[in-house]
Every structure is written in structure tokens, then in C-alpha cells.
Nucleic acid binder design. Structure first.
Lengths: 122, 122
DNA sequence: ATGTTTGTACTATACTTATATGACAATAAT
DNA sequence: ATTATTGTCATATAAGTATAGTACAAACAT
């Protein structure tokens, strides 16, 4: 189970953000093998996007054998295991941290400002 | 002075990458107040993009008062500093940190993951 | 069997991004 | 004054992304 979240300012299109989050959800153990994902309509409502956008993400992941879909039943995490390498994981973390610190810098915040604030969220 | 560099695979559009790099340049001290940026045409040739793409980045930063442009002369780092109250500042930091950590969580990263990554950026 | 839920498919529209091209206005250099 | 350089503006084109709306096919629940 994932708490999906889209960032309109991220640069990456919505369907790609959905793809990313599912892949990383599997890699991090937040999504289990065989687990059912939200229906395209449910996730579309949740994320306030069009159902076609969710369908596009699911479709691409099905082609990659990450998901298995059954019309009339739902979409599920494939039994084939997806391995995300340490490097990919590190790159992603670096990417979103860079993205974020850019925004923070533009508001005049330092890395220490951010770290201190994040510590209060623990 | 910056060594601009675009990454076609970054997800973020070119003009936004340019904006980011200028903002980072200012925050990190690589760009000084009043310093002249490359001309739109020079940077376009350098980055192998259209001059409109560079112009778009400069234009947006001028609207944000980050840059000052003079037609016929060039584009410069603005001398105007933007004033924000302490409370506004604190609220903004909290807001963007919360927003960010939500996104990071959706990728399966923990606060500690983020903090450790941010520390390497210092 | 019927109706609901599921994924899928299609058309149409609109916005964003990026390019190519050409022209214009303000400043600087000569 | 003339020329070159600067940012600006406008038009056209193209690809990618996202939306709205509609409809269909497969599976399930009753």
C-alpha cells in the first residue's frame, strides 16, 4: 500500500511519477507481490487526475512485467521481482533531494535550515 | 560564473534547469550580485538549445526579481533582495519540508535517508 | 441473467515545451 | 550616423502530456 502523491512542479509528468512510486514501492517493500493496486478510477480520483493518466502508467508497467492486469478484476503487483539497484535508489534520492533543495534555496533557506526542520518531523 | 549543463533525461524541462542552475549559482555564491550572465544567444549556442528557451528562463527570473535585464546591454543578477518576515519564512520552510517529505515517503525514503543525503550536499 | 466493477479504447481538445525563423527596440561601440 | 549587440516579440510547427467524454469487453457479485 502506498500513499501516492503527485508534485505538479516536479517536472516529470504525472504518469511517470506514478510509475516511479510503484516501482520504488515494490523495491522498498511497501508494495507486496500479488498485492492489488487501486483501480484506475479510484487512483485517478485520489490524485485528482484523469483516469487515462493512471491507465497510462499501469499500462507501461504491465509492458515491463512489473504489474499484471486482468480486465474486470484489477491490477496487481507482478510475481516477477523487480530489483532496484542501490545505485538507482541512491540516484533517485539524490534527484529528489536536489530538486527540493533548489526550491528551498530559492526561498533563501540553507541546508541546515532544512535539516533542522526535518528533524522536528521525526 | 557558471558552467551550465543540461540533462535531457532529467525530466525537468530545459528552461527550468537553467532557472535552477542560476538560483543555485546565486545561493552557492558562484554568481555575485550585479554579475552579468551570458547573453541569450551565447548561452543558447553553448547549451545547443534555441534562444527562446534561454530567453524564457531569463524572463521568468526577471519576473521573480532574481535577474535584471536591460535591452541592448545584457542580463544581470539582481541587486534587490527580497524581504520576508520571520513568521512567513518559518511557515514557508515548514510547508515545503512537509510537502517534500511526503513525496520522499511515497518513494520509500525515510527522514534519515533524506537528512543523510542533504548532509552530503553541504 | 442481470448489473456492477474492472481495464481498455477511442476521439477531441488544450496546454506545455522546444524548435525554427524573422523581425523589432534599446543600448553600446565605432 | 552607422553598425553590432542586446533583449524582446511574433508566427508557425511539432511532440509530449493531460484532460473530458464516451463506449466497449472481461470478470465478478447477486
Amino acid at each position: 500500500m502506498i500513499n501516492f502523491k503527485l508534485d505538479p512542479k516536479a517536472g516529470a509528468p504525472f504518469y511517470r511519477q506514478i510509475i516511479d512510486q510503484i516501482k520504488f514501492g515494490i523495491a522498498s517493500g511497501n508494495l507486496k507481490i500479488g498485492e492489488q493496486l487501486p483501480t484506475v478510477r479510484a487512483l485517478a480520483v485520489d490524485l485528482k487526475v484523469n483516469l487515462n493518466t493512471v491507465a497510462k502508467a499501469y499500462k507501461e508497467l504491465e509492458i515491463q512485467n512489473v504489474l499484471e492486469t486482468q480486465q474486470g478484476t484489477g491490477t496487481f503487483i507482478s510475481k516477477i521481482e523487480i530489483k532496484i539497484s542501490d545505485k538507482e535508489r541512491k540516484d533517485k534520492l539524490q534527484e529528489i533531494c536536489h530538486e527540493f533543495s533548489t526550491i528551498a534555496f530559492s526561498y533563501g533557506f540553507s541546508i541546515d535550515d532544512i535539516i533542522n526542520q526535518l528533524k522536528t518531523q521525526k
